[in-house]
Amino acid sequence: MNARRFGVVALPYAWLLLFFLVPFLIVLKISLAHEAVSIPPYTPLFDHGRLVVTGANYLFLLSDALYWRAYLGAIRYAAIATAVTLLLGYPLAYGIARAPARWRGVLLMLVILPFWTSFLIRVYAWIGLLKENGIVNHALLSLGLIDAPLRLINNDFSVILGLVYAYLPFMVLPLYAQLEKLDPALSDAAADLGARPARAFWQVTLPLSLPGIVAGVLLVFIPAVGEFVIPDLLGGPNTLMIGKILWDEFFTNRDWPVAASLAIAMLLLLALPMGLMRRFLRGVA
């Protein structure tokens, strides 16, 4: 019995250890090394039995405002995209949760359906839709709604659109899971006690769905901050996000230690506010 319980507990921990902690420690180790012209391109942790670590890479990140601006840029895009996905995803999830039971499966399937196509292909499809000679501009032109093609791509608009499109299911699914559990009788009870639908929503439904909102926000915000493909393909010259800077450090400068310290710094910068936010929202809920 004890052995079985141990196994049940140990398995997820082993998983986390193997696929989260170990890679994290490897990245941490690289971030403390010096760049080197060798394979791999950084100094070993132990040189002749002596521990070699440096904080120079982290100091370097502080020495240039570029990194800060890239972080802030990424957080700004991710925050806007998260807010929009929440505004779109909530009614969607609510609608699915309140739909007749026989429809729910189909509606949920429609939310998940885009995953059946490669993410990359779907981002490319947006290029085809939005570009100057693209489908949207063609349609608007031929309908006579505009005289000249609109600039729909390679700007902030297309980056946010891409992020919202790509991450919407990650908002809808946890929200749905939460809203589906809510007893409709609660709304009825609120109505019976004299609350108008809007008040019932604000005072009953919304607070009870907070855990779903927290999960959805985290699931969208965190990957969106580190996103590389969407800003690279849909963004323009003004799009400054940390994913691209990381790419430059790793591939163009071939400076694995600085790239690694950038990744660690991003993790810490994200984990702290995220942890605080979680605690705060848990408290509210």
């Binding site: 760049e35 570029l66 601006r69 010259p237 003004n238 400054l240 163009t252 400068n253 400076d255």
Partner: peptide, 17 residues
């Protein structure tokens, strides 16, 4: 490597204006 980095950073600045 120093020049490479200086150039890459200048390039990032140019691109992002």
């Amino acid at each position: 490597p120093e020049f490479e980095r200086a150039r890459t950073r200048a390039w990032t600045r140019i691109k992002t204006g």
